[in-house]
Design a protein around this nucleic acid. Structure first.
Lengths: 377, 377
DNA sequence: TTGATTTGTTCATTTTCTGAACTTAGTGTC
DNA sequence: GACACTAAGTTCAGAAAATGAACAAATCAA
């Protein structure tokens, strides 16, 4: 375990990239003397290492960076079947990948993970020794200890202490997290939100997920429900949603909803690209569907911006591209529904992610706990 | 200035009320020995004092509480003309009250404040010596140093360093804050949100204001715009708003909008009560107006709950009551637009406030800086 | 080569917190 | 009413963490 000051140092490097000891001292408000000691400890622990030397006037400064191979993490996504299981380093680089059968029985999951570990480490014996934690991403509500799944509709769970079970079986520190929140953490740790203190991630897939970082910390909300944007009412009195109410964003803008609406309109489609293609050839129904979905998502994001004024919105999507009609409509809808003074002030980044998002997100939860400690201290 | 540990201690007492040294030690994770020292320092400084003795098994514990008369604060609201100016203690109790002419010239404001101070202290010479800060609440955007007004439409300001100007004229530590954010701070410090870490305040008046506390800290947003719920689009394509877009919450649910809509419907009204009265006698137009306004506000609050999952929503209102149709519709709209799983999970408190809200909010900004330091460390 | 400049280290000192023993002020029991 | 028992709060020596100032190191500029 790292001390509180070691953690602070690790945090600034994780946010800002390689820094010299003097720069870190200024950023943390500590003396150069303190910095000297703390960084030596971390170098001895193998967490930091010296990288490039920067020449200027006076003695050149030596930048310190996290040592990517100082710790390894396993990430598992319970959102797909078979469940992906990856091994990655402190940079989020995936070293090995395999899959395990998905189950709804936490004991079976714990066993599958434990049994899967040896082959995952197959060609990386050193990673085995430096394994510092397992992270699991799932669809549902997770408590603030990142140990218990309070409720998951998909897995049909209610108060399942999954992390504890896996920890007991495998003997390895384990944390679980909600899928969208895990993606937000991985973007903060490994991705494009490193230096941003407050941002929201909107993840577009079969469903719509969302999570917020606020002042450098993942914000869970009182009941772990911060970011449940999918069930914001966007079309009052609209189509019924599986949640029980009507007009939720999820019923109009999720990939599942877009495809269903398209099929209802008689459009043959398997993916978003199909519908985009139809729209580009002038199919009025396809255009209508994409307009409806895009406006809804754009309005929801605009509301999010108005309410939270984040430093960035990161939209991650698995399917298709954002260059088509859908993306254009989303952007337009955001602009027209945001206070004109703010229009264009909030960067909206689009990121196409691969099938590893959830597993990488899961691994980032373990990495986050290793680097910054539990409860994001 | 207090040390960091003294601040931590002051914070838990401010949040939890009187505590014994042992309780504080547990809450802060410090040793009893450390607690003993820190609390003695604060008692010597006059910030804390011993209150009641609690008998149980063993030696009775002595609860420590903030000493209300250890510091005094001046709060000024620039939202009304004449501008109220109050003097209050650490409990938010108003000791003296007066008014000063409102101006758009920051220098004139600073002079008016400086000249107004002596008479404000008239009968309270001791408060004069213990004056620890001035707070100013205004409508507009304030930067995170609580010194500069980045922009205010009402005052027609752009980058006005009001706090610095007042500080120079008066020689007293001064901070400024956005009106809604000031109210949120006063509720956290003096009001009904003391022990709640994450909550949002929705202040209903001529306009609609909103501010969030997240994990115990005021959240300003990247551009200071967190909480600009008034310009969330609630009725897409609805009436034009003075902000330039259409269908903003402000165009339907602010007191100003409600009254305007009512008058357009031919209802004679000066206050919300008049319209409520009309509605209660069966006036269909009045019912329609209140329904429209209430549904809009309820939907906006439901979106806020979905997005942020706060531990409480506090609705403050100056006019009328929430017992009538308007309040009922708001509550209904919140319930029907929130994920059914969450319905009723987020307490919604209604608080009728008097004309001192803004000035008291302003004073709380000064008190917050005295107790917890700048940047809410 | 010399001086200027800035990074990073060393070390004695100060500050802050801890652990353990101790004092204090009650309750409960016989 | 004496005595044990309990828990709060204090004291104090010592550990831990950070500081300030002096210094060593590494480069550039002249």
């Amino acid at each position: 375990m790292l001390t509180s000051s070691q953690r602070q140092l690790v945090r600034v490097i994780s946010e800002s990239g390689p820094l010299s000891r003097t720069e870190m001292a200024q950023l943390l408000g500590l003396s150069k003397a303190a910095m000297s000691g703390i960084s030596r400890e971390l170098i001895d622990l193998g967490v930091l290492h010296e990288t490039e030397t920067v020449y200027g006037q006076g003695r050149p400064s030596v930048r310190l960076d996290l040592h990517p191979e100082c710790a390894y993490f396993v990430g598992i996504s319970l959102l797909e079947d078979p469940a992906p299981m990856i091994l990655c380093d402190l940079n989020g680089k995936i070293i090995a990948r395999q899959a395990m059968p998905l189950s709804r029985d936490p004991n079976v999951i714990a066993d599958a993970i434990t049994q899967g570990l040896p082959s995952l480490f197959g060609t990386h014996p050193d990673a085995r020794e430096k394994l510092s934690g397992i992270g699991v991403a799932l669809s549902g509500f997770v408590d603030e200890t990142q140990s218990n799944c309070v409720q998951s509709t998909l897995l049909n769970w209610q108060d399942v202490p999954l992390a504890r079970i896996i920890r007991e079986r495998s003997g390895i520190e384990t944390f679980i997290e909600n899928d969208a929140k895990a993606v937000a953490v991985s973007e903060k740790l490994f991705g494009s939100a490193r230096e941003i203190q407050s941002f929201s991630v909107v993840s577009l897939g079969d469903g719509i997920g969302c999570a917020h970082f606020i002042d450098g910390k993942l914000y869970r909300g009182k009941h772990g429900g911060a970011g449940e944007i999918a069930h914001c009412t966007i079309e009052p009195g609209g189509s019924p949603c599986r949640c029980g109410k009507r007009g939720c964003l999820d019923t109009v803008a999720s990939m599942k909803a877009i495809k269903e609406m398209s099929r209802a309109e008689g459009i043959e489609c398997v993916s978003l690209s199909d519908i985009e293609h139809e729209a580009s050839t002038g199919n009025a129904a396809a255009i209508r569907v994409l307009h409806r979905a895009g406006s809804a998502l754009g309005l929801a994001i605009a509301n999010l911006i108005q309410i939270n004024d984040p430093g960035m919105i990161l939209i991650t999507h698995v399917e298709g591209s954002f260059d088509g009609l859908f993306g254009t409509v989303v952007n337009q809808a955001v602009e027209t529904n945001v206070l004109p003074r703010y229009a264009g002030q909030t960067p909206i980044r689009i990121k196409r992610v691969d099938g590893d998002v959830w597993a990488r997100g899961a691994a980032s939860i373990a990495a986050h706990n290793f680097l910054l400690g539990p409860n994001s201290n």
